[in-house]
Amino acid sequence: MSQPSTAFVDRPAVEQHLAPTGLVSEWRDLMAKHAAVTCALEKELQNRHHIGLSEFETLDRLVDAACETYRMSDLACESHLSQSALSRAVARLEREGLVSRSMCADDRRSISICLTDKGRAVHATATPTHREVLARTLR
């Protein structure tokens, strides 16, 4: 078994090399801000409207698309969610009657998502809360 190295390590030089640079500090600040905003949104949307942030963001994208149906693959490309996280969010929305899923008419391999009237109503009710939290946490 080999013995641990007892070579001299210049601690200040190593710490200086590992100390956050401007870019690393900016990255950490951005991640901290993202975590704070995400947590605040999740808490308020859940408490006031019984909807998670992923579900709200999915509804928000569907409303912004302003089309009758939306391909799941297109939504995945525009969303911050992974394919599996988006699938879970859409499944939860479908269980609550906020969206419906169907096979695409022109491509049977694709799934289309359609916002329901109930989904539009939940989105309309939750949007002021979403925007209020963004204004409060991003400033």
Rank of each mutant, 00 (worst) to 15 (best):
D64H: 15
E44H: 07
V37N: 00
F56D: 00
R71H: 11
R120F: 07
L86H: 05
T127P: 04
P20D: 05
L115E: 03
H34F: 11
L45K: 06
E55G: 03
T125L: 12
D29F: 09
H80W: 07
V63F: 03
M72V: 08
A66C: 07
M72W: 02
L75P: 02
A40D: 02
L81Q: 11
D107N: 15
F56L: 08
Q3D: 15
M103G: 11
R61F: 14
G119S: 00
A66S: 12
R120P: 00
K33V: 11
L45W: 02
S73Y: 03
H123T: 01
P4V: 00
C77T: 09
E96M: 13
A124S: 15
M1E: 07
A121T: 05
L41P: 04
I113Q: 01
A76F: 03
R109Y: 09
I51V: 14
S102I: 04
Q83S: 13
R95A: 15
T125G: 06
A36K: 13
T58E: 06
T137G: 08
G52C: 05
F8P: 02
L115I: 13
H49F: 08
A66K: 15
H49W: 09
S112F: 04
S100C: 08
H80T: 09
S110T: 05
H49R: 02
A13M: 03
A66W: 00
S82N: 03
S54Q: 14
A124Y: 01
S112W: 05
C114V: 13
S110C: 12
G52P: 06
C114R: 15
I51K: 07
I51W: 00
H34Q: 14
D74N: 11
R61V: 00
A135L: 09
R120S: 12
W27G: 09
T6C: 08
V63G: 07
E94H: 10
A124M: 11
L81G: 06
R71Y: 06
A7C: 12
V63S: 01
D29L: 05
A91I: 03
A105W: 00
V24N: 01
C114L: 08
E15H: 08
M72L: 07
P128T: 02
V90E: 10
M1W: 04
S112R: 15
A135R: 10
D106H: 09
E96W: 05
E55Y: 10
L23F: 11
E78Y: 04
S54M: 14
A124H: 02
F8Q: 08
S2C: 11
V24K: 04
S73M: 12
V14N: 05
R28F: 10
S5C: 10
D107I: 01
F56N: 01
E57F: 04
G52S: 13
A66V: 03
V99M: 07
E68Q: 13
R109I: 02
D107H: 01
T137C: 09
A91S: 14
K118C: 05
R95M: 12
S73C: 09
L59N: 00
H49D: 05
L138D: 04
E57C: 14
G119M: 01
D29R: 15
D10Q: 04
E132R: 14
L41M: 13
L138C: 12
M31R: 10
R28G: 09
A35Q: 12
V14D: 07
A85S: 15
